[in-house]
Design a protein around this nucleic acid. Structure first.
Ligand SMILES: [Mn+2]
Ligand SMILES: [Mn+2]
Ligand SMILES: [Mn+2]
Ligand SMILES: [Mn+2]
Lengths: 218, 218
DNA sequence: ATTTTAATTTAAGCATGCTTAAAAATAAAA
DNA sequence: TTTTATTTTTAAGCATGCTTAAATTAAAAT
């Protein structure tokens, strides 16, 4: 195989199955910013390659081979993110885009070496779990979006979505980072925005922001 | 621009102009392992992009823009090689192939960070000079292929060609590395093979080997 | 100078990964 | 249940970067 486009499709499918329990052509198209027609096309090719189980109109699944390929892509991506962040000193809001390209261009040998240098990290800089060489995925602690918390509740950040750099820059600016404590002071029903307390300071955040920050459930 | 194929063509053209003083479609085709027709095709595209000066049958030159793009590609490649070798601990016979892919997938920011971490190296693991951010190329000391040395002459290795992994594995095995002293004990006219002394030990090497190892001229 | 060989370019065609527009299937609303 | 809206697939077409085969040009040999 070995093909940047196919690798991207597989990653998107894998992550959505993992996080949402399902995937439709629709979602793939919007995540990869291509037309629905392009997705149908590629699904056929991936099916022919034996990587995807695809029944038109019915559903999309990964085959065993497709899943293990995809899992390895996620592993590559997240190891690159940790490496860029910890060894090269790149900010957490920049590593995702860089890793998105590097993940397709590195040998397994290089990935394994970086993993060893980093002493086998279990989570990437945004809290996402890193599959081991054998494919085992560390369990994420139980968590829910900040947007689900009620007034008065508080908890620690355990994961943030990493696909939008501007989002990461913004939340860094108000002090959000992994393991930081956040308290919901006020929640407004008309637009779902909320006032939160971070390091003693109050901040107003939109529901869009709150939906992409995840809080550990105690 | 930004395109793996075009970047590879530019690098090959630049290196050949730099090292041999000229370049023909022929050479490009063999270095990139594509047909001559593919080269003609691509030369037209690069000309249209304003990166190459191309007169059919007459000659190939880089424009100012093409040269600076190519120089930056060589810079990326060689900084990756040093980084992989020194930071990641990858053997000198493996870094070239890995860098050949990574060079297309990294931001200038990443390259500059790696360069800084490495304290601005001037030469890559095979002795090739690394262009600075501004494009300045460190001067290589005067040198000639080992194959040109006469019986009794000796000198230190200053550079080796890095494009064939097996070649590097082989010469490593007989003790050839940068700055190592080599003495020519015997030179056989019928096949240009020679017996050389490395670290006190005699070795028989073919002219093909000797042509790819470069010795500093005192 | 003529012939032969080698290098280069042109021509036609193929696979990949997209696009837009139209058709078909499914899901949602009335 | 019937109509409407949404999603998905099919169809046709385009750019890219290759290929092989044929034609052209340049270089080398006689
Ligand atoms: Mn990421
Ligand atoms: Mn991440
Ligand atoms: Mn190299
Ligand atoms: Mn090198």
């Amino acid at each position: 195989m070995k093909n940047i486009s196919k690798e991207d499709y597989l990653s998107v499918i894998f992550k959505n199955l993992d996080e949402e329990g399902g995937i439709k052509p629709n979602i793939i198209a919007s995540k990869l910013v291509v037309s629905n027609a392009a997705v149908t096309d590629m699904l056929k090719k991936l099916a022919k390659d034996g990587l995807v189980d695809y029944k038109p109109y019915k559903g999309i699944q990964l085959t065993a081979e497709g899943e293990s390929y995809a899992r390895n892509m996620v592993r590559r991506h997240r190891i690159w993110e940790v490496f860029l962040n910890e060894v090269v000193g790149m900010a957490w809001d920049k590593v995702h885009d860089e890793a998105n390209r590097l993940e397709h261009s590195s040998s397994d040998d290089l990935i394994n070496r970086m993993e060893e240098m980093l002493d086998y990290p279990e989570y990437d800089p945004h809290g996402d779990p890193i599959p081991s060489k054998s494919g085992r995925m560390p369990k994420l602690k139980k968590h829910r979006p900040l947007s689900d918390l009620n007034e008065g509740e508080s908890g620690r950040v355990i994961r943030v979505n990493d696909f939008d750099q501007k989002f990461l820059v913004y939340i860094s600016g108000i002090g959000v980072k992994l393991d930081e404590k956040i308290t919901v002071k006020e929640k407004r029903s008309f637009d779902k925005s909320m006032e939160v307390i971070i390091k003693g300071k109050p901040w107003n955040i939109s529901s869009k922001i709150a939906k992409n920050v995840f809080i550990e459930v105690k």
